[in-house]
Structure formats: C-alpha cells, structure tokens
Write a protein that binds this DNA or RNA. Structure first.
Lengths: 133, 133
DNA sequence: TCGTATCATCTACAGGTGTAATCATCCCGC
DNA sequence: GCGGGATGATTACACCTGTAGATGATACGA
C-alpha cells in the first residue's frame, strides 16, 4: 500500500526547552559535532553528564531541531533549526506575552533595569538610523 | 522550643509560569479581585474553568506573588510581585539566555522579524535621546 | 435553625523537563 | 574471533505545569 502523504504538516513548532537550547548553542557555534564534543562544551558549564546531553540530543532530533549523520559507529549532529529563527520566535513570544506585542516598553524596561550599556545604545542608535534610511 | 529563625531567606524567586502570569495580568490591571472576578477576565480568553484559576491563585500565593485578604466568606487577591519587577526579570533572562546579555542583538532580531512598527521606532528614538541626555 | 449556594483547599492526572542509569550494539585491537 | 570500550537507545523518575473534579467549611436566606 502507498504510505506517503502523511508527514506533510511537519513544520513541527515543538518548543525547545532551556536545557535543549544550551545544546543548540554549541551546535550553532560549530557543527557538526559528536555528542562527546558537545558535552565537552556544556557539561562542565552546566554540570551535566554525557548521558544528559545524549537525552537532550535525542529529544532535539525528535523535534526536528537537529539532524544526525552517521559517522562510523557514532553520529554527527547538525542544527536544523536556525539560531535566528529560534531567537526571533522566542523574542517575539516574550514581547507578545509581556508587552502586548510592543517592543518599545521592553526597551524601556531594560533601560530601567540598567541592562543597556554604552555599546548597546550606540548599536541601537545606528540600527535605528539604518531602519529609518 | 523556640521555632523562629528559619524563614529569613524568603525573597523566594520562584518562577511564575505562563498560565500564572495570565492571572497576574488581571491583578495588575485592577486589584484586589476575587477569584470569580479574575475568572471573568481570563476564563473565556484562555478557555479555563474557575477551578483552574483557583489552582493558579493558590500556587501564586505559595510563591508569594499574590496576597490574600479575607472578605467575608471569600478572599480578595492582590498582587505582591510588581509587574515591572516581573517583566524586568523576564526580559533580562531572555537577553541573557539568547543574546549573551546584549540588548542590541535583540533589537536587531525584532527589526529583522519586522516586529517593530513606526510607533516603536519613534518611542525608542525618544528613549535613546533621553538616556543620552 | 437548617439546607444550600459559595468559596477555598485538596487531590488528581497527563504531559513536559531535567537529569541520569542501564541496556544493547558494534567495531577495534589483541 | 572475541572481549571490552564507545556510543546511541531505552527506561526511569522526580518535579513542574496545565487543567480540573471532589471535598470541606461556612455564612446567608428561609
């Protein structure tokens, strides 16, 4: 029997958890990587065991956020989800949830929390000028 | 035996979940409110039952995010956690986690996602000017 | 005074997340 | 050829979250 035509809806917007995100960060910085290499990057920082990284990797594979390529007995992991897509969506979510979709209050908030330094201000000024073209 | 001197460390930075945040929003907008009044605000929007709101409220009380004041047979709920504290902390977390603490890339991200409209730009320009004083 | 409507609390339960031990497989060196 | 180390897969389990029903107290109206 023909099996096709069932997995069309796979833009699977499964949320990436925070721990999973740490793994993605490694992969965005450099890829492909083996599980062990990823662990070398994050295990000390987060005090994880290799097993934990492997679990997270398999969940990320299930969520279609990373792809595997066999390399002998092991796997090489590559990100599928792009960093900018993730950060974009995540930023968007925050702005929507906390500020009703308005970005300006977010910046007011960060300013008040003194989370903006000189460099940020300069960059943002430049960006604004650019956007205004 | 003297029982005291154990609950000093209560700046309890328990995280507020997303559903809990929806309840907080109602309370930030107007307070004090009864559970029923809160439900009237959010139950239709989120398709919740009154019981759900009550559970969320009790969790928020446990987290010291809202306070109760008896009013006859029922309770009036008031926010303890301030909105700006919450949004500030939450924004901070995002910027730290996603952009290494730099706000400018977040801004760039939102710009690229076209999440900034004319009003946002204008407000941010004003804000920048103000910060630059 | 007594039932009942009204509340808050307790209990419940499925799904997600953090964290990891254990299991199964397979290839390399002896 | 075979045992052991490496590596992914499976299983585990506690806690958090979303969602809500059941339970218990209680004050108001009849």
């Amino acid at each position: 029997m023909p099996v096709a035509s069932d997995d069309i809806k796979n833009t699977s917007p499964d949320r990436i958890s925070e721990a999973e995100h740490a793994v993605m960060e490694s992969l965005w910085e450099r890829s492909p990587l083996t599980a062990l290499e990823i662990c070398e990057e994050v295990c000390t920082r987060r005090d994880w065991s290799l097993a934990t990284v492997k679990t997270l990797l398999s969940r990320l594979v299930a969520k279609n956020a990373v792809a595997t390529k066999p390399d002998g007995r092991r796997f090489l992991y590559t990100p599928v989800l792009e960093k900018s897509d993730y950060t974009g969506a995540e930023s968007r979510r925050l702005v929507d949830r906390l500020f009703g979709g308005r970005a300006a209050p977010l910046f007011a908030q960060l300013a008040e929390a003194e989370a903006l330094d000189e460099d940020d201000l300069a960059e943002m000024e430049a960006l604004l000028k650019e956007l205004r073209k």
